[in-house]
Nucleic acid binder design. Sequence first.
DNA 1: TGTTGATAAATTGTCTGACAATCTAATCAG
DNA 2: CTGATTAGATTGTCAGACAATTTATCAACA
Lengths: 217, 217
Amino acid sequence: MAGSNVDTVVDAITEAVRNGRLVPGTRLVEADYTHDFGFSRSTVREAFQRLISTGLLTFERHRGVSVCKLTRKQAVDIYRVRANLEGLAARLATEQIKRAPEICLELQQKLDDAVEKSDLPLFSQLNTEFHALIAKAADNEYLLQAIQQFETSIFWLQFRVLVGQNAVFTTNDDHRLIVDAMVAGDAKRAERAMVDHIMKASKLVQELDDDYFKIDK
Amino acid sequence: MAGSNVDTVVDAITEAVRNGRLVPGTRLVEADYTHDFGFSRSTVREAFQRLISTGLLTFERHRGVSVCKLTRKQAVDIYRVRANLEGLAARLATEQIKRAPEICLELQQKLDDAVEKSDLPLFSQLNTEFHALIAKAADNEYLLQAIQQFETSIFWLQFRVLVGQNAVFTTNDDHRLIVDAMVAGDAKRAERAMVDHIMKASKLVQELDDDYFKIDK
DNA sequence: TGTTGATAAATTGTCTGACAATCTAATCAG
DNA sequence: CTGATTAGATTGTCAGACAATTTATCAACA
């Protein structure tokens, strides 16, 4: 699947950050990765460089790379941009979703079921799919890429937000509003609904415990 | 200025793409860069990797990297995203610009002068500064970075758009509308004005000659 | 005890050189 | 002139090296 060895490392690190195995602040030591993957330093370093410009890793001279930490403000800033981008995506996607609403409605149904069963991991996964579906339906590769990039940087936060409160229910109500607007072909409303949805999540992040943004050494 | 050698190469390539010395489609051969900069392959390759994930360079296995080409649709897609992002920036920047409008008004004046003197290069540079000023005033590092990334990918196009028509004048009228709204503290209006402004540029790109999007190998 | 400073170990930045895999260009046969 | 073959260029990847710098270790000292 991954073309080069560099891709393999990039994908592995990305996935590890997403699922929380690599916590923000963790330093990535070249030697660990050369050892784990059996690749050379060149390859590992090239992978690191790729991840630096996506914003997933930071880098300090002579200290190597580490998983980006986020201050509360930074997290909120990301949500702002994300709201804007996904709002645009919802607006642009409306036309296509209206034409073929089946997949979207089906996903909506699955989300409802997951809430019913209080299956949080499933809900989280379906939630990701939901947003991805809309981002893709917008038919704009740059928009899609930007959305996915930001989504990756805050994925770990999102999960915690969902866990914290029983925000799941509110969240799912939002989904319905978005889907309704899109199926009705009301692009403007879909956009507003999406923006509101994400800004609501932003609010939750703002109230999140300090621990999540600890800036220990 | 640039910390590492990698940074040096990254900056040089970025600048070369911006000012059109590196045309879309150009292949970047490692050997050329090791030779020109006197750096080793490792360093040059790391720089390439960094630029791949910003979207400035594409990469094909065993064929190396080349400057990203844009189809007409891709260019228009970028403008869509950019319009939204810069619109958001204008909205967020309004508060600060309203508090200290001097710099902005001064820039506006310089732009007017450049138009008066028909000094296109100067206008282009000031135009870039204008958009950068607003993006920075929004006080959101992620927004800023995203805007700058997209701006870099289409900079060469923008210049051609300006040259083509005497679109400079219309463009500058737009600027005034944006500044007026911000100085008046009307964030919503500033956002709309900015979106309109950029979507207008997008229209010009759509009408641009096919040559600019030629996909010769 | 706890701080300080010197020393050793670990880690990164960068270079050189190597070789297989693959792409590209030159060459030759028909 | 076209298609096939060969030689050359370029990339993917590795190993090993060494200086610069950070981090850890540990003993001397207040």
